[in-house]
Design a protein around this nucleic acid. Structure first.
Lengths: 198, 198
DNA sequence: TAGAGCATGTAATAGGTTACATGATTAG
DNA sequence: CTAATCATGTAACCTATTACATGCTCTA
């Protein structure tokens, strides 16, 4: 069980059509950037091993003025290997969530510092949410009729569900943090009712 | 910006009190397992560097029958270093979400295979959700009065928001996948109305 | 003329898991 | 008697990012 996920990610991209390493990178960045990424340092060496294993074939396209394109295409064996991975159930992966880790140690810093932290996180999620909305529109337009479209929209929807859940969590958490500061301040100075509405 | 997160994670655990590497591992497993993890292979070498950098001090507790405990405690400098990290805003990290990647390539496999995949994922989230509920109860009971408690509950809440959002996403996605198969089958045999309610 | 885009790749480094090595005690 | 728990640590290995090296063309 030492499966290399990057290998399958690259094979998956190649299943959409023959591509160069450069193209693959661009694909990662524009289509799946919100849940996956691969760098050249992974892509180029892995393309070589895919060829060695018989999962892909390479052909060279000469271009004028631009460097040659090394175009890779999945073989039948490669497609079969990919399918086998796709049907294998995903096992739960414990991601590293930095905001949660920092908040877990929140007692070490002041309440306003924690609030600042959560507010900043909320903003990143709001931006992400907007990007996903834009991506949804773009992909619906550009890929109308493409048989992959329904699946692609499901992955966008995944991100949308997560971001809105996190924004909600931020709001709840900010409320709780504000209550904590309010309690602390009450003993020092009362009548200090700052706006807590949201 | 080559910050080693594991280092800060370990310092954070040490901020809760002096501990051995063994204790630290246990802490990760029982308190933050749903969003962070560290293996011995990381913990022991990093504890050594923490001492070298002056962020922790080591003392040895002898025990009878059991191996010695190497107990580490944060120094003032260590606590300061930790605080500096805690207030630094988290930058968005693009996690690798395997279920989304597989679904992105869903066209390569059959609709029932995709359904099986999402149903399995849903089940992992349901289990996770139950574990979080149990963790919440346990921590509320065991850590009543502990000043860390409110922060710890916020991190549990994070997980709860995410899991319920994902369960909802699974239901939506399963509905869409079922519609897709229904459409495909309509042309072949009609009157075959399998239950799609949920 | 500077910088972005096209296009390939490698090397150094960092980050992380797993297996291994050791060995006593205790609970089932 | 077996397995788990206590307890430390290292070595081999895998995975991943970043910086580097090269060099042409097109646009601002």
């Amino acid at each position: 069980m030492k499966e290399n996920k990057s290998k399958y990610a690259i094979m998956g991209i190649l299943s959409l059509g023959p591509m160069s390493g450069y193209d693959i990178r661009k694909m990662f960045q524009k289509a799946v950037a919100n849940f996956w990424n691969e760098s050249y340092g992974q892509i180029y060496p892995l393309l070589k091993t895919l060829v060695d294993e018989g999962f892909a074939v390479k052909s060279i396209e000469k271009q004028m003025g631009k460097p040659d394109r090394h175009v890779y295409a999945l073989t039948d064996r490669g497609r079969e290997e990919l399918r086998q991975w796709l049907v294998e159930p995903v096992e739960s992966q414990i991601g590293r969530i930095e905001i949660a880790l920092k908040l877990f140690f929140g007692q070490q810093i002041s309440a306003p510092d924690n609030i600042r932290q959560v507010e900043h996180f909320r903003e990143t999620q709001r931006l992400e949410s907007e990007e996903l909305k834009a991506l949804e529109e773009r992909v619906k337009e550009e890929k109308a009729g493409n048989p992959n479209l329904p699946y692609w929209l499901m992955t966008v929807n995944y991100g949308q569900h997560v971001t809105s859940a996190l924004i909600q969590w931020c709001d709840e958490t900010l409320l709780a943090l504000n209550k904590m500061t309010a309690k602390t301040k009450k003993g020092i100075k009362k009548g200090n009712k700052k706006e807590c509405s949201r």
